Simulated assay, not measured.
Amino acid sequence: MNTRSMIFTLYGDYIRHYGNKIWIGSLISLLKEFGHNEQAVRAAISRMYKQGWVESKKKGNKSYYFLTERGEKRMEEAAERIFKFNPEDWDGKWRMLMYTIPETKRNARDEFRKELVWSGFGAMSTSTWISPNNLEKQVRDLIEKYEIETYVDFFVSEYKGPNDSRELVEKCWNLDEINEKYNEFITYYSQKYVIDKNKIQRGDMSDAECFVERTNLVHEYRKFLFVDPGLPEQLLPDKWLGSHAGSLFSEYYRELAEPASRFFEKVFEDGNELKHKDKAYNAMEHPLIME
């Protein structure tokens, strides 16, 4: 797996709950469990630093890395976005965004487009994007972030046909492809869950192994943030597998949560301070978990 992506997963699922800061030595020790060597970890964290995701701080001869405001915001957005798998009732309205961003702002335009996909918008055309979800705040933040107020128009409207809303969805998202990804997740992890649950109950699975499996599980599940727009139930196909995948994730995560956290803390306390752990944090109540 990509070292940089795994570091993001560790920040999102662990580090941000422990003061949002970690000694590079601890990060290297954690990533070794996944087969990433020291050189790869240092290169990845350096790249994240240059991209503005993390900042560094020296304490004695040790270097510590913590998420920037931008990085923290992205982690919070990701946690909130997870609730798309259990969406609220649809208000029947569509959010439509249109833009004519000039070639002189090409980089901003490309980044803006990626952010729209991340937020759950679907493309009707190159410069016209829609979503049934209430994303007004995200849109305002993005327009301000990329300084493109002059080039963007945003509407909240009703769809009057001539087709129905589900046909509109089919034009903008390939739900069959997304559903197949859910099916692959369920097929692989349902069997793995049963095997690991039995191993844990027999005491045949170490805390380190649980840490690896929990991190891998979150890493794979969070990929749906990039492909599933989180449509309201009214717009989903009858045999949608998103909820099934979410329930499987929740059950598997709960089995792994406590031993995985024990291992993380054992590694973390060497070079870091556990006193910075968020007292309200409980791995069994992870924001990804569906009740």
Rank of each mutant, 00 (worst) to 15 (best):
N282Q: 00
I45S: 13
G246T: 06
A245G: 04
I195F: 12
W173R: 02
Q51C: 10
N37Q: 13
E213G: 00
E220H: 12
R113V: 13
H36A: 15
E115M: 08
P259H: 01
L116V: 06
D89V: 12
H286R: 02
E72L: 13
V218G: 06
N282R: 01
P232F: 00
I148G: 10
L256D: 13
A40Q: 15
E103R: 00
N163D: 15
N86H: 07
F154T: 14
R140P: 02
N183R: 12
I143Q: 09
N2G: 01
S46G: 15
Y188A: 07
Y64P: 01
G230F: 02
E213W: 00
M75T: 06
S247I: 04
T100F: 08
Y146E: 08
Y188R: 13
P162R: 08
D141T: 09
T3F: 12
F121L: 05
T68A: 02
K223M: 05
V117P: 09
P287L: 10
C172P: 01
F211E: 01
Y182C: 03
T104G: 06
G230T: 11
F154S: 15
L248K: 02
I28S: 08
I143G: 00
P87F: 06
E149T: 12
P102G: 08
A108E: 14
S46P: 01
N198T: 09
R95N: 15
L175T: 03
L135E: 13
H276M: 04
K192T: 08
E115A: 09
P287Y: 06
K199M: 14
E291D: 08
W129A: 01
T215Y: 00
Y18S: 07
M48L: 14
W240N: 04
A79R: 10
K137F: 07
N107E: 15
E167I: 02
L116E: 05
N61P: 01
E38P: 11
G230S: 12
